[in-house]
């Protein structure tokens, strides 16, 4: 288990336009933590500050009490793995070769039998065993996502960061992946931090939810504590109803007048210049 501590973390590209401001956060349990926030809230930036892809403008990040600045990238890679939002491979390799890249921080230039075994086991865990020797190019977007998660697990990290891992998956696999991430956190004692946009999938599986709003952390706690009608309406500016299903919140989003303020003139003109109505 690794403790992640963020102290007074600020980030901005332009000092006049802060993206994150005075973030204080401690994650010290092997659990599934979901980061929620509207587009542009700074979710990915927050994640990038934890794995050194971005350097905070001010403030510090500590891993088990050691400042992130003192970590070499190679040492950090043995602790934190990352699943990017989208794979950017130009010249694709086989699925197994792609997953084997997760062993880079642990291996030399050649992969050992153990490296291959670990990669194969994680491919199976994501139910991709029938595609192990297929070229990464030949897979669907959802399958790409699963390969990237398998690659991340192959890194045998103590902390997994995932930037929208369910973005391209169908409903079944969204649930499967989130459940698997929750189980991985518990069984392997890994802290899993993921950015998620689907409120109900988050409500179903997250152990903890961190809600970003107005450049800071607006709410932090269990799904029942964070996913309330008030918080969701404030965060996204839309109406909703929150009920309880299987002992967890279930959110029904409502189409209402709140959306009108986000609809531009161009869209209004599609309706002959009239306002958008149900009639």
């Amino acid at each position: 288990m690794t403790e992640i501590r963020l102290e007074k973390l600020c980030f901005s590209y332009d000092p006049a336009v802060p993206i994150l401001k005075d973030i204080d956060l401690v994650i010290d349990k092997p659990e599934l933590v979901c980061i929620l926030g509207a587009n542009g809230a700074g979710k990915s930036t927050l994640m990038h500050c934890i794995n050194k892809l971005s350097i905070p403008t001010s403030g510090d990040v500590y891993l088990d009490g050691k400042n992130l600045k003192e970590f070499h990238l190679k040492d950090l890679a043995k602790i934190i793995s990352f699943v990017p939002h989208q794979e950017e491979t130009t010249f694709s390799m086989s699925v197994l070769d792609t997953v084997l890249m997760g062993r880079i921080p642990h291996s030399g230039n050649l992969m050992s039998s153990d490296d291959i075994r670990i990669a194969a086991e994680n491919i199976k865990l994501l139910e991709m065993q029938d595609f192990a020797m297929h070229n990464f190019d030949e897979l669907s977007a959802g399958q790409h996502q699963k390969v990237m998660i398998a690659r991340s697990l192959t890194q045998e990290p103590k902390v997994m960061l995932l930037d929208e891992p369910t973005a391209n998956l169908d409903v079944k696999y969204q649930m499967l992946v989130m459940r698997m991430l929750r189980d991985v956190a518990k069984i392997k004692g890994i802290t899993v931090i993921t950015i998620c946009h689907d409120l109900n999938v988050t409500a179903m599986y997250a152990d903890r939810v961190v809600m970003l709003y107005n450049k800071g952390i607006y709410a932090d706690g269990t799904v029942a504590e964070v996913l309330t009608k008030e918080n969701i309406e404030l965060l996204y500016g839309i109406g909703c109803q929150v009920m309880e299903v299987q002992g967890r919140p279930h959110i029904a989003l409502l189409d209402g007048d709140e959306l009108d303020s986000h609809i531009g003139d161009n869209y209004q003109s599609l309706n002959g210049g009239s306002e958008v109505t149900d009639e």
Binding site: L53, L76, A77, S81, F82, M101, G102, P105, N109
Partner: peptide
């Protein structure tokens, strides 16, 4: 030839390569 694993990682994008320890 001694840097082929880094080349493989960089082929997956700079951000990914950094997260597997490549400077």
């Amino acid at each position: 030839m001694c840097m082929t694993k880094y080349l493989n990682a960089m082929n997956s994008g700079d951000n990914y390569a950094k997260t597997v320890g490549v400077n």
